[in-house]
């Protein structure tokens, strides 16, 4: 096989791995927005925090698998606390239209808070998280070599996706959640315990971000700025894919992952401008996103 094809496929796998991580983060982001109407600016910060949790757990125990199990649960716990103690508190004020502003600002505050807390606890220098022995090195098939860890990320994301899909589309709980995402008021009128579903979805969303954070830790550098790129990318995913649309989020995540992987090689420097320009265009022309339902 010639060198260009190898390069293309290797980059493709890179893009796929990043796209999968992005989707794990963005799916929670879009679910939360679709259901609660809250644009959680701090969502990607949970992703970054999870990477640090993973780092810390590995410092203590040395086990990546333990980190993969515990860190997302801890993150989900924080997410649930944020929803129960903070977002709910704001709705009590009866601020009318301004409630959107306050919710946005609360998530901004939490975003800054997490970033600064991380800087204080772990410092600003990048931390290194090693992949477990099992997942290091390269694997060969079809005459090409791939880093095992990226394959693992793709596999892990796929299985979580599958699980998520099964829960959302095959169970009663999933029905309830989807109903609440579509129309929370109507679901409430039909006897769904909407506040509980809110908490559940918030927990689920942050848990997904947590998984992505732990999985990303050995692949990307763990540093406080990790949240920024992820936040901007998941914004693009949600805006283009349509607020609340999982399918849209998936398609755009994959595209963005590949675009990031190839964009670096083909048009360095311009990819941000093109991406955000496209996002701005979609937001104004079709505010419901490319895959969202038209109002």
């Amino acid at each position: 096989m010639d060198a260009i094809a190898v390069m293309l496929i290797t980059q493709g796998i890179h893009g796929l791995a990043y796209g999968m991580l992005l989707f794990l983060v963005a799916s929670g982001f879009t679910l939360i927005f679709g259901m609660m109407g809250i644009l959680n600016i701090a969502h990607a910060s949970f992703f970054m925090l999870a990477a640090y949790f993973a780092f810390q757990i590995m410092q203590w125990s040395g086990s990546f698998w333990l980190a993969l199990l515990l860190a997302p649960i801890a993150i989900a716990g924080l997410g649930i606390l944020m929803e129960r103690l903070m977002l709910r508190q704001i709705r009590k004020f009866k601020l009318g239209k301004a409630v959107v502003l306050f919710e946005l600002m609360l998530t901004v505050g939490i975003m800054v808070c997490i970033e600064e807390a991380v800087k204080n606890l772990w410092g600003t220098d990048p931390e290194i998280v090693n992949a477990p022995e099992l997942l290091r090195g390269l694997v060969q098939f079809f005459g090409m070599t791939y880093p095992v860890y990226r394959i693992f990320i793709i596999g892990l994301s796929c299985s979580i996706l599958l699980l998520l899909g099964l829960i959302l589309f095959k169970t009663r709980l999933g029905n309830v959640v989807r109903a609440a995402v579509q129309d929370a008021d109507m679901a409430g009128a039909l006897g769904v315990n909407v506040p509980l579903v809110f908490t559940l979805v918030f927990g689920l969303g942050t848990w997904l971000a947590g998984i992505a954070g732990v999985a990303a830790a050995p692949m990307l550098t763990v540093f406080p700025g990790l949240a920024n790129q992820m936040m901007l990318d998941s914004f693009i995913v949600v805006a283009l894919g349509g607020f609340g649309s999982l399918f849209g989020a998936f398609v755009i995540s994959m595209l963005l992952g590949e675009l990031t992987a190839f964009g670096i090689q083909f048009f360095p420097g311009y990819s941000t401008i093109i991406l955000f320009g496209f996002m701005a265009l979609v937001l104004t022309i079709r505010p419901s996103g490319l895959f969202g339902e038209k109002e």
Binding site: T272, F276, M279
Partner: peptide
């Protein structure tokens, strides 16, 4: 573009434009 939208969309749109500006300044 900006006058057509409000709420979350306005917030995201302004953010997108400031990102574009950041990239342009660097470019």
């Amino acid at each position: 573009l900006l006058v057509r939208v409000g709420g979350h969309t306005f917030a995201m749109l302004t953010m997108a434009f400031s990102q574009i500006m950041y990239a342009t300044v660097m470019k």
